[in-house]
Amino acid sequence: MRQVTDAFPFPGYFDPELSGHITVAQTVQRFLKPGSRILDFGAGCADKTAVLAALGYRCTAADDLQDEWHKRGGARRRILDFAETMGVEYVTLDGGALPETGTDTGTETGTDTAAGAGAFDMVMLHDVLEHLHDSPRALLIGLLERVRDEGYLFVTVPNHVNLRKRLAVLRGRTSHPPYELYYWYPGPWRGHVREYTEGDCVALAKALGLTVHEVRGTHHILEKVPPRLRRAYLAFSRFAPSTRDTWSMVAQKPPGWRARPKLDDTEFRELTGLKSWGELAH
């Protein structure tokens, strides 16, 4: 952690004790040995990726680097230079699209990765899924095709019903990001669209045909809890893990896994409760 924070180009951006870097690293260590290959999709400034690289994992970070702050003050170049310093290969995505399987990845850090089928032991998405405006189905299928059989999907997502949000709603306040941020955000909204519950995480893994190894509540954004209340919050959440701020899920890709890109007509009608397609007109 000290190695990463000393090299990180944005002072004050994160505190590893509060922002989930330790629990992410510990989770990876439970499932993979150092030397394993990890793809961190939506890696942003590659802070969590860099921690794993420092622990001996072979890491590739991928992001379009199109958040508003990425475009200001030379941030993009500083992120790529940091990744290279930490031994992280950085794939900058063209229009948000994944590189084609088995083709050159178009990295900007001067190295090449085989992005082919089964190239990685794990794909991670940390604080990514809640930003998607559409179903994550196509994205996750594409990523899982790059994971070996019996490899892992590791996601962390904000808990839509954490304690802070439950109390805010009871007080008549919103559980969404501040409205002013949404109103003034330049260009397409890149904030949270749909946050997750524990049941959503399990449903996601089931729909993808994965075996769930763990879904647990963790603390990744403790900085949002006032310091004077932090000790009480941590004590309460020990007895009610579902009130923690983040869900962490690790699911495994079974041997012979095959992508399921869509439901057939009968399954879709059952899911939506439509008895006939004629009901769509009403």
Rank of each mutant, 00 (worst) to 15 (best):
I79P: 00
Y57D: 01
L80R: 05
E89K: 09
M124I: 12
R58E: 07
D134Q: 13
L93R: 04
E130M: 04
G118E: 01
G142I: 05
R78S: 07
T107R: 10
H131R: 08
F120T: 01
G95T: 03
G106L: 07
H133G: 14
T103P: 06
V123P: 00
K71W: 09
T92P: 05
S135C: 07
V91D: 06
F154M: 11
R148H: 08
E150N: 15
G102L: 05
T105E: 08
D81P: 04
M124A: 15
T105G: 15
E108I: 12
L80Y: 06
G118A: 10
H131A: 06
R58W: 03
G95M: 03
T113W: 09
L65N: 00
D121N: 11
R72Y: 07
D63S: 04
E100Q: 09
L143G: 02
L93Y: 05
F82G: 00
R78M: 14
R148A: 13
R78F: 07
N159C: 01
E108V: 10
V128P: 00
A62G: 04
H70T: 08
G151Q: 07
H70G: 02
A114P: 14
V123R: 00
F154H: 15
S135V: 05
V161T: 10
R137I: 12
D149P: 12
L140M: 11
Y90G: 01
H131S: 10
A75K: 03
T109W: 01
R78V: 05
L153T: 10
P99I: 04
C59L: 07
L132G: 00
Y57V: 06
P158V: 13
V88R: 02
A83C: 13
T103L: 14
Y152P: 03
Q66S: 13
A62D: 01
A138K: 11
R78G: 02
G73A: 12
L143Q: 01
L98W: 04
T105I: 11
A138S: 15
W69S: 08
L132I: 10
D134N: 13
M124W: 02
Q66E: 13
V123I: 06
L140D: 09
V88T: 06
F82R: 00
R78A: 09
V123W: 06
G102D: 04
R76Q: 08
T111F: 12
N159D: 03
E145T: 13
G96T: 03
M122N: 02
D112Q: 14
H126K: 11
N159F: 03
L153V: 07
R146C: 09
R77H: 10
V123K: 03
M124P: 00
R58H: 13
G110M: 06
R137V: 06
L80V: 10
D127E: 11
R58V: 07
A117S: 14
T101H: 10
T92G: 07
P99A: 02
D64Y: 05
A114H: 11
H160N: 15
E84C: 09
G110N: 01
E145Q: 15
H70V: 06
T103I: 02
D149V: 12
Y90C: 02
R137G: 09
A119Y: 02
E84G: 12
Y152S: 07
D67S: 14
T92F: 09
E130F: 09
V128E: 00
L80F: 08
L143E: 12
T85P: 02
D64H: 08
